[in-house]
């Protein structure tokens, strides 16, 4: 594929679909997180590709696409932090839950 906008869009669409597929079929919570990361990266790539190839209109100069990607990375970082906090707290409770089930069974 030659170095042009449509090929970039194809790559980012592939990323999007693979990410969605991961989210839909993964059993593991952290696997779903990875899927979401893929989709976010696909969107980021799209933004940068658009800002590179399309000629700038008056309000947006060359870099507005890249600003968007910068924010995407920041938001993704916050997202992973919160998601892992919840996953780990569920995971630690999950072990404690097992213990409780066991207790109820006996009780």
């Amino acid at each position: 594929m030659q170095y042009s906008l449509p090929s970039f869009l194809i790559v980012s669409s592939l990323l999007f679909c693979l990410g969605m597929y991961t989210v839909l079929t993964r059993r593991n919570a952290i696997g779903i997180l990875m899927g979401i990361e893929l989709v976010l990266n696909g969107a980021g790539l799209n933004f940068v590709a658009f800002s590179r190839f399309l000629e700038p209109s008056q309000t947006t100069n060359l870099l507005s696409g890249q600003i968007f990607t910068l924010f995407i990375i920041a938001v993704a970082a916050a997202e992973v932090a919160v998601a892992l906090a919840i996953v780990l707290s569920l995971y630690s409770r999950m072990k404690s839950i097992d213990v409780e089930d066991f207790k109820n069974l006996r009780g």
Binding site: E37, A77, L84
Partner: peptide, 27 residues
């Protein structure tokens, strides 16, 4: 987009991926 590329390497791979791998190891 060289700046974004570098940011991607540092923040995404250095930070987020390490966190994900840390999460994977933990569970």
């Amino acid at each position: 987009a060289d700046f974004i590329g570098v940011i991607q390497v540092i923040v995404y791979i250095g930070g987020i991926l390490v966190l994900i791998i840390f999460g994977v190891m933990m569970t």
